[in-house]
């Protein structure tokens, strides 16, 4: 369908003829199947969104959702009238942004640093070890983290609960010694991380980093390998050192990958850490640990109010789409790659 011109340019034939269609009937049939698949599995479930505006109680068939009584924006009014919903929204956005930013920075840094290791055996081992936690389920990771931050957990032990370990290690340094004594640090341990709401978001961010950094770095490592080695050689000849090459060749080389991934991940902000929030929270820090998903679990699934659940879902989808559109606009404004 394309033929090379003399000067090397490629001309695309745009006109669709009946003859052409006949020739490609197999391909067309396959794509028709794909369209039908999409309509059935991606578009028809969207009809269920009417539940957000109806008084639907779970019944024998899904058709009940369409015959139920209309209730206008009642479900949305209920949501917006609850202070806990706004708290949940704040928590979700904050945790989402913290997770997004920290995991991005760390994954990119990790990938670049790993790339600098020249001994392939060590490089491969570090990479494998770093992405292994990704394959643990959240339940396991969260129980480990929960244990680690209790009063008898490893974090408190390392910080010096009962053992004065941190003090013993650092007490030789005069400045640190004074700081320990002035701030009465030794009596502050064991510190109760789980009853301090200020610690919840950092712990969630840490958990997310521990589990996902290695995995997230894989894609950047792949992007780095596609950078033309000639560029590095040329830079060396021009006198660039290691850091020079990192900043002027590696980083710009993966910039488009970074921007596209960032844009795509912005859409996931509102899904931030359902598992972590669900598995790590407790009554004393509820105001900072409830996310939108937990809220909908509590007020929609548990009370079997699927209408309200759909309303929450619709709200989330609209917010996510607007986030992507805004981020995409900003990327375009700065002349970066964009999704659409």
């Amino acid at each position: 369908m394309a033929r090379a011109k003399k000067n090397g340019d490629i001309e695309i034939k745009r006109k669709i003829t009946v003859k052409e269609l006949k020739k490609q009937w197999v391909l067309l049939a396959w794509s028709a199947a794909l369209v039908i698949y999409g309509l059935i599995f991606y578009y028809s479930p969207l009809l269920g969104l009417v539940m957000a505006f109806k008084r639907y109680k779970i019944g024998t068939t899904l058709l009940d959702a369409f015959t139920a009584e209309w209730c206008g924006f009642e479900h949305f009014q209920f949501l917006f009238s609850k202070p806990l919903f706004w708290e949940a929204l704040r928590n979700t956005v904050c945790m989402g942004v913290i997770n997004l930013v920290t995991s991005f920075i760390l994954a990119i840094t990790f990938a670049i640093l790993l790339n600098e290791i020249k001994i392939s055996f060590i490089k491969k081992s570090i990479q494998t070890i770093s992405y292994l936690p990704h394959f643990l389920s959240w339940v396991i990771v969260c129980s480990i983290i929960h244990q680690a931050f209790t009063s008898k957990g490893i974090v408190n032990v390392l910080l010096g609960a009962g053992t004065n370990l941190a003090y013993d290690v650092f007490c030789g340094i005069p400045f640190v010694n004074d700081w320990f004594l002035d701030n009465n640090i030794l009596n502050k341990f064991p510190y109760l991380f789980w009853s301090d709401e200020n610690w919840f978001w950092p712990i969630v961010a840490f958990t997310n980093l521990w589990k996902e950094t290695g995995w997230n770095a894989i894609i950047y490592l792949a992007a780095i390998t596609s950078i033309d080695p000639c560029l590095y050689e040329a830079a060396s000849i021009d006198g660039a050192g290691r850091f020079g090459k990192m900043f002027h060749i590696t980083l710009p080389g993966i910039r488009s990958t970074v921007v596209i991934l960032l844009l795509m991940n912005v859409g996931w902000i509102l899904n931030a850490g359902f598992e972590m929030a669900y598995l790590l929270d407790n009554e004393t820090i509820r105001h900072f640990s409830t996310t939108i998903d937990i809220y909908s679990l509590e007020w929609a699934i548990k009370s079997m109010n699927y209408g309200r659940g759909t309303a929450i879902g619709l709200f989330k989808s609209l917010a996510s789409v607007s986030l992507i559109v805004i981020a995409n606009g900003i990327a375009k404004l700065f002349g970066e790659e964009s999704l659409f």
Binding site: S143, T150, S151, S195
Partner: peptide
């Protein structure tokens, strides 16, 4: 117990 409110049932 200082951690009564934050312990899980398993703990």
């Amino acid at each position: 117990d200082r951690e009564f409110a934050t312990q899980t049932e398993d703990e």
